[in-house]
């Protein structure tokens, strides 16, 4: 979503993005020409008159589980977004019985919070795991 019109979205997709991604952008490219939605989400940059790089993870109940906002010149890390999405999906599937420690990725051990884990996280998780690929 940006402040561009749907016509500009079409031009951008058809003339540039489709040369970077086979078949073009698969998801809806939305137009927020007035900036109203950006303001509603707290990411409209009033000085520049554009949206900042806001990214929201919304769960199936419509609840915002996480967000990230960057100023325009720095791009996002999409792997990190996918990692967070997978972690939130895992936690939801466990109905909140599991939590994902720093650096968690699918296949890595989770933590099961409870009385026995208090003071014992060091037995289950090492600091280096936060930095592993």
């Amino acid at each position: 979503m940006s402040i561009d019109s749907v016509f500009v979205h079409k031009m951008w997709n058809d003339n540039e993005l489709s040369k970077m991604v086979d078949g073009g952008v698969p998801f809806p490219m939305l137009s927020d020409a007035s900036g109203k939605i950006g303001r509603l989400y707290g990411v409209f940059n009033e000085e520049a008159g554009v949206e900042n790089r806001g990214r929201f993870i919304i769960d199936p109940d419509g609840i915002i589980q996480g967000y990230e906002v960057l100023m325009p010149p720095v791009g996002r890390n999409f792997n990190e977004t996918i990692r967070q999405l997978q972690a939130f999906q895992h936690v939801r599937k466990s109905k909140g019985t599991e939590a994902t420690p720093a650096g968690w990725k699918p296949g890595k051990p989770t933590l099961k919070p409870g009385p026995d884990l208090v003071g014992n996280v060091w037995k289950e998780w090492q600091t280096k795991m936060a930095f592993e690929d």
């Binding site: 979503m1 940006s2 402040i3 561009d4 500009v8 979205h9 031009m11 951008w12 540039e16 927020d32 950006g38 989400y41 990411v43 940059n45 520049a48 554009v50 949206e51 900042n52 790089r53 806001g54 990214r55 929201f56 993870i57 919304i58 769960d59 199936p60 109940d61 419509g62 325009p72 996002r76 977004t81 999405l85 939130f88 999906q89």
Partner: peptide, 16 residues
């Protein structure tokens, strides 16, 4: 889209 996971991304502008 509620009922699915949604990623909502905003960005400054096309061709930027």
């Amino acid at each position: 889209y509620f009922g699915k996971w949604v990623l909502l991304c905003l960005y400054p502008g096309d061709f930027t």
